[in-house]
């Protein structure tokens, strides 16, 4: 989506803060949080706007407020995720975590209030979808935090819940506000967008050796599950297994970073992750191509997979 949409989402979020938040300190902090996310772009808000346009056939100003509300919901989840995981210390919300947790609670309710106050005919359907999909994402996050997944099928189930529910939510809300009858056809690829993104994140998480490296954080992700299942007789793998069960220290793993990087390539851990990701991309593409919508909208949707 264009830079214009992102700028508009940003300014709508700023307007929301001015309208709803009365505490000046909270307003300042929230403003910093929104600024921090600006460079990433507002993917979820974009999906809301795009789906509304697809099924309404024209853009209308009031969809931006709902899309901004969804971005604020995602921000609340980002805050919770970083505080729960303790693996990312660059966002401003990890500085004063007690205040950030409070802001996160605020955002969970604010986003619902904004939809409730909108004048969309189907706003209550949208609200129900927001709540049900947010609950699914929270359950997925719980499973992820338990960090006891040791097989790929359960891992994918968790990703569908944790990440797929949030992209589904964004696609569905834009859709149902325009035309609730179209929800079913959007649901499937909406979830796939999240799975594709999460697998990408898993691969990125193995290409760095800072605090966000999934292996150093003893997380179970697709490339790690693959690596530990196909390559048993390598000293580095034995070290990784012992690191996960607590008998090897982090500095010993860091010494093996180059060996582990090579193993991820040589064993096919990255290839396997890419192929799994491609499977979901192909499924999403097939769903998108079968939609009865304008060609230009199909092209726009394909950019998200």
């Amino acid at each position: 989506m264009s830079l214009d949409v992102n700028n508009r989402l940003y300014s709508t979020m700023v307007d929301i803060l001015e309208t709803y938040v009365s505490n000046e300190d909270m307003k300042t902090q929230l403003s910093d949080f929104i600024d921090f996310k600006k460079d990433e772009g507002y993917l979820f808000g974009e999906l809301v706007v795009l789906h509304y346009v697809i099924y309404n056939n024209k853009i209308e100003n009031h969809i931006f407020k709902v899309a901004a509300a969804i971005e604020l919901l995602i921000l609340s989840f980002d805050i919770l995720d970083d505080i729960e995981d303790q693996d990312n210390f660059s966002p401003p919300w990890v500085q004063q975590q007690n205040l950030s947790l409070n802001i996160s609670s605020y955002l969970l309710f604010l986003c619902q209030l904004i939809i409730k106050e909108s004048d969309f005919k189907h706003k209550y359907i949208a609200l129900e979808l927001l709540v049900t999909n947010a609950l699914r994402a929270i359950e997925g996050q719980h499973i992820d935090l338990l960090n006891n997944i040791t097989c790929e099928d359960r891992y994918i189930d968790m990703v569908v819940l944790k990440s797929g529910s949030l992209t589904t939510l964004a696609c569905l809300i834009g859709t149902v506000l325009a035309n609730p009858d179209k929800a079913t056809e959007v649901q499937l690829y909406g979830s796939h967008i999240g799975v594709i993104g999460q697998i990408q994140n898993d691969m990125e998480g193995m290409k760095r050796w800072d605090g966000k490296n999934d292996l150093l954080n003893k997380k179970w992700t697709l490339p790690i599950l693959y690596l530990l299942s196909v390559e048993q007789n390598h000293t580095a793998i034995e070290k990784i297994q012992n690191y996960y069960n607590g008998s090897v220290e982090k500095h010993e793993i860091l010494k093996l970073s180059k060996v582990i990087e090579s193993l991820l390539e040589e064993t096919g851990a990255f290839l396997y992750s890419k192929v799994t990701q491609q499977l979901y991309r192909n499924k999403a593409e097939s769903s998108i191509m079968s939609l009865s919508i304008n060609k230009k909208y199909k092209k726009a949707l394909l950019k998200y997979i």
């Binding site: 989840f77 980002d78 999460q198 990408q200 994140n201 990125e204 290839l271 491609q278």
Partner: peptide, 17 residues
Amino acid sequence: IDVVLNKKPQLQAYYWK
């Protein structure tokens, strides 16, 4: 085959949690 042939552009870094 899609991946081996690199048919699709790789995604830009996402910002998933």
